[in-house]
C-alpha cells in the first residue's frame, strides 16, 4: 500500500506565464490519468517564481479556476470540491508536497492530489538573469491500499550552518515601480559543488538507513541545477549497478521545482520502467536542503 503516481505531464510551450504553464501541464496530466477532473480534490502548487510577483491569492486557486476543478460547488453537490494552496521550498518542494499528499490520502482527506509546478521570471518574459527554465509540470497522486507500489519514507536534511548558497528576493522598495517585473538572485561560487555533495550524502544515508540494495535502483531522478550534476550525485552516492541517473540539464537547463516531475515523466512516458522497478528521487536546494525518497513503480 502506498501513495502512487497515477499521471504525469510537462509543458514547454512558448508561454512565459507560470499560471498558463501549470494549467497546460495540469490539463495534460488529468487527461493522461484518465480521471474525471471533478475528482481532483486537492491541488498543491509548488512553483516558486510567479507572474507579477503575486503575493495573494496563492497561485493554486488561479490555476484551479482555469482547470475548472469544482470552481463553485454551491448549487451542486457540496461534497464534490477542491482545496488548493501553494507550498514553497525551492527545488525540495516536490518531495514535501508528496509528504503532504501522502498524509492527506492516508487520512481520507483527499482522493486525488494534483501537484503542479512552474517557474517564470515575474516579468513573464525571457530574462537572462533568470536561472531557471520556463516550464510547467504536473503529477497526480492517489492511494493504493493494496500491493507494494508507491513512495517509501522520505528523509530530509538542512545544512546546520553557513550560507544557504542561493537566495532570491524582490526588493519592493529598491525596485521602485518595477516590483512586479524584477527579482534579485544571489548565488555562492561553490553552490553547485555543495549541492552535489549534500545530495550524494543524503542518498548514501537513505540507502544505508532504509536498507536499499544499490544494485536494485533503476533510476536516480534528481534536481538539475548544473550540467553533469545528476551523474555526479549518482557516482558519489555509490550507485554503480545497472541503473542510471536521469540527466536532463543539457536538454532543458535547470527546471527547478519541475525537475523531479519532469524526470519521472521522462522515464514513465518513455516506457523505461516496469512494474516493481525502484526509482530514487533526490532533491537539493533551497538554502541548503536535501531530501530523498524511494518509489516503487
Amino acid at each position: 500500500m502506498g501513495t502512487i503516481i497515477t499521471g504525469s505531464a510537462v509543458c514547454t510551450d512558448m508561454t512565459d506565464s507560470s499560471i498558463e504553464l501549470s494549467v497546460a501541464a495540469g490539463e495534460r496530466c488529468i487527461k493522461n490519468a484518465g480521471i474525471d477532473p471533478r475528482t481532483v480534490d486537492l491541488l498543491i502548487n509548488i512553483g516558486v517564481y510567479r507572474d507579477d510577483n503575486i503575493m495573494e491569492p496563492a497561485i493554486a486557486p488561479l490555476v484551479q479556476k482555469r482547470l475548472g476543478l469544482n470552481n463553485d460547488p454551491c448549487g451542486g453537490d457540496l461534497n464534490v470540491r477542491t482545496f488548493s494552496f501553494d507550498l514553497l521550498n525551492g527545488a525540495c518542494g516536490f518531495l514535501n508536497a508528496v509528504q503532504v499528499a501522502d498524509a492527506s490520502l492516508r487520512c481520507g482527506m483527499a482522493a486525488n492530489v494534483l501537484i503542479l509546478s512552474s517557474d517564470v521570471h515575474p516579468s513573464k518574459s525571457v530574462n537572462e538573469t533568470f536561472p531557471f527554465k520556463h516550464i510547467g509540470a504536473a503529477v497526480l497522486l492517489s492511494y493504493d491500499p493494496n500491493g507494494d507500489r508507491g513512495f517509501r519514507d522520505i528523509i530530509y536534511r538542512t545544512a546546520a550552518n553557513g550560507s544557504g548558497g542561493f537566495s532570491a528576493y524582490a526588493d519592493t522598495i529598491k525596485y521602485g515601480t518595477a516590483g512586479r517585473s524584477s527579482l534579485t538572485f544571489v548565488t555562492d561560487e561553490d553552490y553547485l559543488e555543495r549541492l552535489g555533495d549534500m545530495a550524494a550524502d543524503t542518498v548514501r544515508e537513505y540507502i544505508y538507513s532504509k536498507r536499499i540494495d544499490p544494485s536494485g535502483v533503476k533510476f536516480l531522478v534528481t534536481t538539475q541545477q548544473g550540467k553533469g550534476l545528476a551523474e555526479k550525485i549518482y557516482r558519489a552516492a555509490g550507485l554503480n549497478g545497472s541503473g542510471r541517473a536521469i540527466d536532463l540539464h543539457d536538454e532543458f537547463g535547470d527546471t527547478h521545482t519541475s525537475s523531479l516531475s519532469l524526470g519521472f515523466h521522462t522515464i514513465a512516458s518513455g516506457g523505461l520502467v516496469q512494474e516493481r522497478d525502484q526509482v530514487l528521487f533526490v532533491a537539493a536546494g533551497s538554502g541548503l536542503t536535501s531530501a530523498c525518497a524511494a518509489y516503487v513503480i
Partner: peptide
Amino acid sequence: MTMSEFAELCFGMPSTENS
C-alpha cells in the same frame, strides 16, 4: 474548499505607481 471561481477578486502584489 476553494471557490476558485472568485480567485481574482483580491490581489496583493507590488504597486506600479509607487515603490
